[in-house]
């Protein structure tokens, strides 16, 4: 039982982590809690659905329920969602930033943006659940734990994506600039870093990762317009738990949130699943508000 909960938790955690990376970057680089980040997950999931509608999910390859077409759709969705995230910034957040608006005005704007983004999806696709593919698959038994082949694939892909992102942050000039801005936007600007360019890259990367989280969540097993919104608290919990601005932090935070959620389900009514990330978050804020990997500072 515990082993199954752990396995399920790691899988949920991988999806949460992909979303939490963007939340964590926004918290640290743009200094606001982006309540609309969850909607990028939803957009990513539904944009991929558009491509799947044209090309189909592909013939099932090997043990998986989809073919290369779904992966291509996911890549296109990631690109478009990244651009959409930047687009929302240009339309809304950048204007507020330039005006020197109160930092919390960004959060209100995010409330509004989230409402618009989520309900645009409802407007186009309605509330019904959608599926990329109706194929069924047989779970693998690994040491008494049931794992769906799709889940294993998603987990490996998530690991690969995070590794690439880590290399990008560690070695590329843009990556270094992003880390510099996470440390101190003012100092980064004084060093000649073009902060607007860094912010643009941050949105595109965050949006692309959110879209992948959305496709993965939609593949296991279905899409609905609240697919992102239901993850919102988990994203914040993971980002803050790991320490905002830290990539390994967001990943480990995501995994911990996923595991905590699934293990807790062994003991409490499943109806309360949605409150688990919040309880974890409250615990972190009280005990170690800077997060596991965060630096001490004002919180």
């Amino acid at each position: 039982m515990i082993a199954q909960a752990l396995a399920d938790g790691i899988f949920t955690g991988a999806i949460v982590a992909l979303g939490a990376i963007g939340v964590s970057f926004t918290l640290q680089i743009m200094r606001f809690a982006n309540f609309s980040h969850s909607e990028l997950i939803t957009w990513g999931a539904y944009l991929a659905l558009v491509f799947v509608a044209f090309a189909g999910p592909g013939t099932p390859t090997g043990p998986f329920t989809f073919g290369w077409q779904l992966l291509a759709a996911a890549a296109m969705a990631a690109l478009l969602t990244g651009l959409a995230a930047w687009g929302v910034d240009v339309l809304v957040f950048r204007r507020l930033r330039r005006r020197g608006a109160h930092p919390l005005a960004m959060v209100f704007a995010a409330f509004g943006a989230a409402l618009v983004m989520r309900h645009l999806v409802v407007l186009v696709w309605g509330h019904e659940s959608r599926f990329y593919t109706r194929e069924l698959q047989i779970a693998w038994q690994v040491m008494g734990v049931k794992v769906l082949p799709d889940q294993a694939f998603i987990l490996l892909l998530a690991v690969a994506v995070v590794t690439v992102l880590h290399l990008f942050l560690a070695y590329s000039r843009t990556g270094m600039a992003m880390r510099a801005m996470a440390e101190s936007p003012a100092l980064a600007q004084a060093c000649g870093i073009r902060t607007e360019a860094v912010i643009r890259t941050t949105w595109i990367v965050s949006g692309a990762l959110a879209a992948l989280a959305g496709v993965f969540a939609g593949l296991t097993p279905q899409l609905h317009p609240e697919i992102g919104f239901n993850l919102l608290l988990a994203l914040f919990a993971a980002a803050i738990l790991g320490g905002s601005g830290s990539l390994p932090g967001a990943v480990i935070g995501g995994l911990l949130v996923g595991i905590a959620e699934n293990v807790a389900l062994l003991f409490v009514n499943p109806g309360y699943k949605g409150a688990m990330p919040f309880l974890l978050l409250l615990l972190v804020l009280l005990v170690r508000p800077q997060g596991i990997f965060g630096e001490k500072g004002e919180r």
């Binding site: 606001f32 919390l104 109806g271 949605g274 409150a275 978050l281 004002e298 919180r299």
Partner: peptide, 19 residues
């Protein structure tokens, strides 16, 4: 808590109460 952390925490409280 800092402003937006209070927002996240209180949002979580409302979700929990609703559950």
């Amino acid at each position: 808590l800092r402003g937006d952390y209070l927002a996240i925490a209180s949002f979580g409280i409302a979700v929990s109460i609703q559950l």
